[in-house]
């Protein structure tokens, strides 16, 4: 076994973007070298996405919004659970990729992958509960039925955390789509490979095309057009360093995007995620109707 592995020339993977349910290269034709976290050992070339790739991703995401936001919460829950199933089935691949990306031992990397799988299960269960938790009837002082319900905000641009290539990615992405939004994700700049591979999981998980779009490249280069894009509703700055985050937030102000700022301290991706990442991408809609015969 070991002998044959050594004697056999491995087949390298060409890492590609995941946009609109397809796996394109960057339209720019550019790639950049991705190395492991320790020694600078070459792992692969990743697409160096351009502004135009970001724009294409937004178009794909917008196109996916009506279908995905209109899907039943039960259906979205099943799709998210399917993502967990698919990821579980590719544990070994992701354990290897996370170990390489983050310099973890195989067992620690496996624990990260397990946590990522479990995170999808957690959010799969949230899809049809969040409306009950954050919405409800309002007892107005008059003959009116009055109900507040959460609705997805639309297209969310997500700067994935730089320090956690898979669990971090999943922790920021899953709540975006659990609530019915479509996402354009900029993968961790130096460790984009688990994210790009994750596109393959999504593609085989009944997640409709365009609901998640994954770009690799320079966070600063890609985030600028996303922050100013008029057809992006919200911006998750989790993966932006403080100075860039401030610039992007200022840019997002022009279109009054909903912005989630990066945490001032490093986030612990293993802790209970709470609901704040769900509610960040929800609008509250309140409907009134008279009560009369």
């Amino acid at each position: 076994m070991k002998v044959s592995e050594q004697s056999r020339l491995a087949v390298f993977k060409t890492y590609k973007l995941y946009v609109g349910g397809k796996f394109p290269r960057s339209e720019s034709g550019r790639v950049y070298e991705v190395t492991d976290s320790k020694g600078g050992h070459w792992l692969a070339n990743a697409p160096l996405s351009s502004r135009k790739d970001a724009r294409d991703a937004v178009v794909a995401a917008r196109k996916a919004v009506p279908g995905w936001s209109g899907a039943t919460a039960y259906n979205r829950g099943q799709v998210l659970y399917r993502v967990a199933e698919m990821l579980e089935g590719r544990r070994e691949q992701f354990t290897r990729e996370v170990a390489d990306a983050e310099g973890l031992s195989k067992s620690k990397a496996a624990a990260v992958v397990d946590a990522a799988v479990d995170r999808w299960v957690w959010y799969a269960g949230w899809t049809d509960k969040i409306a009950q938790v954050v919405g409800g009837a309002n007892p107005v002082a008059g003959p009116f039925f009055n109900l507040s319900t959460p609705e997805p905000t639309g297209v969310v641009a997500v700067l994935a955390p730089q320090d956690s290539s898979l669990l971090g990615l999943v922790s920021v992405l899953a709540p975006v789509i659990a609530t019915g939004n479509a996402a354009v994700v900029v993968a961790a700049e130096r460790a984009p490979l688990p994210a790009l591979s994750f596109g393959e999981v999504l593609a085989t998980s009944d997640v409709p095309a365009g609901v998640v779009n994954i770009l690799s490249g320079r966070t600063a280069e890609l985030s600028a057009p996303l922050a100013s894009h008029q057809d992006v509703n919200a911006l998750d700055l989790t993966g932006a360093p403080a100075e860039l985050a401030a610039e992007l937030e200022a840019s997002a102000a022009d279109t009054l995007k909903r912005v989630r700022r990066p945490s001032p301290a490093a986030e612990d991706w293993t802790r209970d995620p709470g609901t704040s990442r769900l509610t960040a991408w929800l609008e509250t809609k309140t409907v009134w109707h008279p009560i009369g015969v």
Partner: peptide, 11 residues
């Protein structure tokens, strides 16, 4: 076929 009446609005 006459337009309906919304009770709350009328009152």
């Amino acid at each position: 076929g006459l337009p309906g009446v919304d009770a709350v609005g009328l009152e």
